[in-house]
């Protein structure tokens, strides 16, 4: 049962990493690419870590895996704001959908 849950989480995690990469390739400007990478990849990493933690041989190892998540979240949040602000200062205008 736990084995299946863990496998499912790893696959869901892989899907979110895939979605992040697809967003990076398909989204038109640096701002929307930041949305895709920061949000989707973080969720993907969370699923992967949880999936691996379920299989860990001890609680301490599982907690160590889960400790990684908030650190990467803080990193992603800080880096994406810094990049967005820098892009704004460089005068990069956001892409806009042409509306009828």
């Amino acid at each position: 049962m736990i084995e299946w849950l863990s496998m499912a989480l790893l696959l869901v995690g892989a899907f979110f990493f895939f979605a992040g990469t697809v967003g990076l390739l398909r989204f038109p400007d640096v701002y929307s690419r930041l949305h895709a990478l920061a949000k989707a990849d973080n969720l993907g990493l969370g699923c992967v870590l949880l999936g691996l933690a379920l299989q860990a041989e001890s609680i301490a190892v599982a907690l160590k895996l889960l400790l990684i998540w908030p650190l990467v979240m803080a990193a992603s949040a800080g880096i994406s704001f810094a990049i967005a602000r820098r892009a704004d200062r460089l005068g990069i205008t956001p892409w806009r959908q042409e509306r009828p």
Partner: peptide, 21 residues
């Protein structure tokens, strides 16, 4: 952040037509 991840993943799969930035 869970909601945000789901939302942006769905948008990524639909491509830039899903965006109104």
């Amino acid at each position: 952040s869970l909601r945000g991840g789901f939302q942006v993943a769905a948008m990524a799969l639909r491509g830039r037509a899903a965006l109104r930035p």
